[in-house]
């Protein structure tokens, strides 16, 4: 079976085949949901916001000219909607409290016992959940979606250099946690 590209699907939806939009939903929902869950730190809210994002994307599909990839365009909607949700609920300040600079706060939350095989995966996921939304978004987009810093910058309206800084700082936090918990040998 031939796999249609996102652009071909969009053209089909624009021609009136509304049901083809479900292919786009299925194709991007997991990654977009992961990004939202990491930013909003709440599964139900993430699903609700994801629905809103798809509705917005559908309504704005006529404005999509194909200059950027659909995924980049869609993730921009997802990211902005998540930010709006965060600021509306005034949760932004609360989450910013767990700032990336609060190394001690972050590291003290992770007590990993050497020998636990799944512990690191759990730890990394927990760590991302503790990161401020921008860092969490960068990690999710870079490692899960395999996007370049330029693409991430386009989504988050940041320069590629700022994206790199967020990425480096997140790695350094994890590095510190690894050292403090003596996990180097476990993870090799």
């Amino acid at each position: 079976m031939i796999k249609l590209t996102d652009t071909e699907i969009i053209e089909s939806v624009k021609r009136g085949n509304q049901s083809d939009f479900s292919i786009l939903i299925d194709r991007h929902k997991n990654k977009a949901f992961s990004l939202l869950k990491r930013m909003l730190k709440n599964e139900m809210e993430a699903e609700e916001v994801l629905q809103d994002c798809y509705l917005k994307a559908y309504k704005a599909l006529s404005n999509f000219k194909g200059e950027a990839k659909f995924s980049t365009w869609f993730y921009r909607i997802v990211y902005n909607t998540a930010l709006t949700r965060l600021s509306t609920k005034k949760r932004k300040i609360e989450i910013e409290m767990a700032s990336i600079d609060d190394h001690n706060y972050l590291t003290s939350d992770f007590d990993i016992h050497p020998g636990e095989k799944d512990a690191m995966v759990k730890l990394v996921n927990n760590l991302i959940n503790k990161l401020p939304q921008k860092n969490a978004a960068v990690i999710s987009l870079f490692y899960l979606d395999g996007m370049s810093c330029e693409e991430i910058g386009e989504i988050m309206k940041l320069t590629a250099n700022n994206v790199k800084i967020l990425l480096y700082r997140s790695r350094n936090i994890l590095k510190d946690i690894i050292v403090e918990n003596n996990l180097v040998e476990e993870l090799r």
Partner: peptide, 24 residues
């Protein structure tokens, strides 16, 4: 390098099974 590799192992979450049908 270990920290970077660990980030590669992060989970991909998925919304509920009937998400697409409900949305459509």
């Amino acid at each position: 390098q270990t920290a970077s590799n660990s980030f590669k192992k992060i989970n991909e979450y998925s919304p509920s099974d009937d998400f697409t049908s409900r949305l459509m």
